[in-house]
C-alpha cells in the first residue's frame, strides 16, 4: 500500500519542474493582482462592446435634436433613463457611441499588433538567422523606417489618402514593425550562437529546420507577452488619428473624433468629452496592467529578479 502512495506522490514535484518557461511566466503574471484586475476589466469591456450594440435598439448615429445635451443620470439638470450616460450636441446616445468607439479601437489595436508581430518578427528572424547581406539590407530599411516617427508617416499617408479601417490598420502596422524586427533579430542572433543549435547542426539539421522547429518557439513568446502593451499604444494612435480628423470618418463614432468635437462644449457639457475619455483610459489601463504584469513576470523569470 505504501509503495503505491509513494509512486502516486512522485510525479507531482516533477511535473511542477517540467513546466515550460512560458507557462511559468503566465502563471507568475496570473499571480499578480494587477494582472487579474486588468484581465477581468478587459474581458468585461470586450463583451460589452461586442454584445450591447447588437442587442440594444438605441442607435449610435441617429440624431434626436430635442434630446441634445442630456446629462448622464443624476449628474445634471436634464437627464432621462433612456440615455444612461447622456447625449451629445446632436442628441446621440453617449453610451452607445462610446461602445462603438471602443469596438473600433479594440479592433484596430489588436489587428494592428497581430500584423506588426507577424511582419516584424518574420523579417527579424529571417535577417538574424540568415545573416550576411539579407541582414544588412533588412536592418538598414528598418533603421530608415525607425527614423521617421510613425505618427508622421501615418498622418502623411492617411492625410493624403482617404482613411478607412483597413487603411488605418495597414498604416499603423507599416509604421510599427521596425522595433519588432530589431528585437526579433537580436534574439535570433543570440539564439543562433547557442549550444543546442550547434548540437542540431552536428546531427545535420539545416538552418530553416532549426529556425522554425526549435528557435522560433523560444524567441517569439517573450516578444508576444510585451506586444500586449502595444495594443494599448496602437489604440492611442487610433484615437490620435481620429482626433486629427484622420481616423475613422464620421458618422461612425471613434474616441478621437468624439473628443475632438467635444472641445467646443467642454464647459457646458463636460460629459461629451469626458465619457469616451474615461472609456478609453479604462480600456488602456486594463491592457497596460496585463502587459506590465506579463513583462514583469518575464523579467522575473529570465532575470531572477
Amino acid at each position: 500500500m505504501t509503495a503505491t502512495t509513494v509512486i502516486a506522490a512522485e510525479p507531482e514535484p516533477r511535473s511542477a519542474r517540467v513546466r515550460s518557461v512560458n507557462r511559468r511566466i503566465l502563471a507568475a503574471a496570473w499571480g499578480m493582482s494587477s494582472f487579474k484586475i486588468g484581465f477581468f476589466v478587459f474581458i468585461a469591456l470586450l463583451l460589452a462592446s461586442a454584445i450591447y450594440p447588437e442587442v440594444s435598439s438605441v442607435s449610435a448615429t441617429k440624431m434626436v435634436v430635442k434630446d441634445k445635451f442630456l446629462a448622464p443620470v443624476y449628474l445634471g439638470d436634464k437627464w432621462t433613463w433612456d440615455h444612461l450616460l447622456g447625449t451629445d450636441q446632436l442628441g446621440r446616445d453617449m453610451l452607445m457611441r462610446s461602445l462603438i468607439g471602443l469596438r473600433y479601437s479594440l479592433l484596430v489595436g489588436i489587428v494592428t499588433v497581430l500584423l506588426i508581430f507577424i511582419i516584424g518578427c518574420g523579417l527579424g528572424l529571417f535577417a538574424g538567422f540568415k545573416g550576411k547581406w539579407w541582414d544588412t539590407i533588412i536592418m538598414r530599411i528598418t533603421d530608415a523606417q525607425l527614423s521617421i516617427p510613425m505618427i508622421i508617416l501615418a498622418i502623411t499617408i492617411l492625410g493624403v489618402s482617404r482613411p478607412t479601417v483597413p487603411t488605418i490598420i495597414i498604416v499603423l502596422a507599416l509604421s510599427g514593425w521596425p522595433l519588432y524586427a530589431r528585437v526579433a533579430r537580436s534574439a535570433a542572433v543570440a539564439e543562433r550562437g547557442k549550444e543546442y543549435v550547434r548540437g542540431l547542426r552536428v546531427l545535420g539539421a539545416g538552418d530553416w529546420r532549426i529556425l522554425l522547429l526549435f528557435a522560433a518557439p523560444n524567441i517569439l513568446p517573450p516578444i508576444a507577452f510585451v506586444a500586449v502593451l502595444d495594443v494599448a499604444r496602437m489604440m492611442i494612435f487610433e484615437a490620435i488619428l481620429g482626433f486629427l480628423g484622420l481616423g475613422i470618418q464620421p458618422p461612425t463614432p471613434s474616441f478621437g473624433s468624439i473628443i475632438a468635437d467635444s472641445r467646443k462644449y467642454l464647459l457646458n457639457a463636460w460629459w461629451i468629452g469626458t465619457i469616451p475619455g474615461i472609456f478609453l483610459a479604462v480600456a488602456l489601463t486594463s491592457i497596460n496592467l496585463m502587459g506590465s504584469a506579463l513583462e514583469k513576470a518575464r523579467n522575473r523569470i529570465y532575470g531572477g529578479l
Binding site: 494587477s34 484615437a239 478621437g256 467642454l266 475619455g277 483610459a281 488602456l284 497596460n288 496592467l289 514583469k296
Partner: peptide
Amino acid sequence: AFGMQSLFVSIPNFWLAIV
C-alpha cells in the same frame, strides 16, 4: 513606480492636453 507607469501610459496625450 509600477502604478505610476501604468497610469501615465494609459492617459492619451490629447485628452490630457484638453483637460
